[in-house]
Design a protein around this nucleic acid. Sequence first.
DNA 1: CCCTTCTTGGACTGACCGGTCCAATCCTAC
DNA 2: GTAGGATTGGACCGGTCAGTCCAAGAAGGG
Lengths: 192, 192
Amino acid sequence: MIVLTAKGAATRERIVLGAAELIRGRGLSVGLDDIRGATSTSKSQLFHYFPDGKADLLLAVARHEAARVLGDQQPHLADLTTWEKWLAWRDRVIEIYDGQRAGCPLSALVSQLATPGAREIITELYEQWHRHLVTGIDALKANGATPAGLDENRAATTILTAVTGGANLLQATGDMTYLETALTDALESLRN
Amino acid sequence: MIVLTAKGAATRERIVLGAAELIRGRGLSVGLDDIRGATSTSKSQLFHYFPDGKADLLLAVARHEAARVLGDQQPHLADLTTWEKWLAWRDRVIEIYDGQRAGCPLSALVSQLATPGAREIITELYEQWHRHLVTGIDALKANGATPAGLDENRAATTILTAVTGGANLLQATGDMTYLETALTDALESLRN
DNA sequence: CCCTTCTTGGACTGACCGGTCCAATCCTAC
DNA sequence: GTAGGATTGGACCGGTCAGTCCAAGAAGGG
């Protein structure tokens, strides 16, 4: 990595943020010139801060967007200690995906980036997400109101799958029902 | 649509099959020249049988692949009349996705085709799939062994979401656990 | 004040790729 | 067998786009 001054770091960040927003809106089909235009930079800057070119830049965008996915769910995701808070989180998740019907920006990035680096970012995202859910289920368990013999790992996996599957189906069909129903049903297993 | 002789229809099908296989293996990044090479055709043939060019061809491939998705699940999907058959279907689904870790070819197509036509194919696929599941749940209901008050539409939605979410996570992370766990858990709601 | 390093501008290149075109060939109906 | 349409081959075009290059600003330490 090249040594960055404060100014350079700011430019780099401006590029990532601008590119992320552009990709969020138009998916693939964004070229370096689009990014250049949207961020008021020049070609040489793009390659100065991302020496490996577009793949490098997209990877940085993916990292940024992965952090956003979890960040958007806060503070709920970090505090799933009561059933009511689980419901609030569910509502927040539904709200997020309802708002960004265009689709999770990561899906476009992932399909475009077949590199191992991209997969690593995604895997890490899902593992963190899963860990948050497990932590929340454990908290619920400690509070006592969960069914006997509940496996927090299995339950977290099912819940996470419901979210991603629902988001997937929402993006493909434009229908929110899948996400709402599947997520609500998945949470039901925590209750009883 | 242009009038087709038997020969022409065969060529057209050869193109679709070849393109589908190519895309299944290499995702996006397949060009017309790749398809031309893989199917022993010429540029003019591609545009003869698909006058609107690549988009047209990809749409045909998407239709073909959508049919494949359901076809691969037969005969199980059309005969979900007992709990054992549901389990057999589940195993078949897991087997299918385990075998094609590269990912559902439709995901690549969908992200590349933002056209309304593509969305229609996908929506139709999921609606058919959902209908099959509802029919199966109704059969189970008729056989008596389902929990009281089971809503077959909700249950089918949850099951379908588990499958697509699991497939999604499998493709992104390479981990089968999500699909296995989420689908098994979703089916559990039919039982009791 | 100068020298070095970071930073920026933007013209240019070369490859790739979708799409066009025309001519050659095959097939079939009459 | 011949005319007309279907089918095929492949050269060619033009746009797009990632990536290169060089030279000209800031910035700041000595």
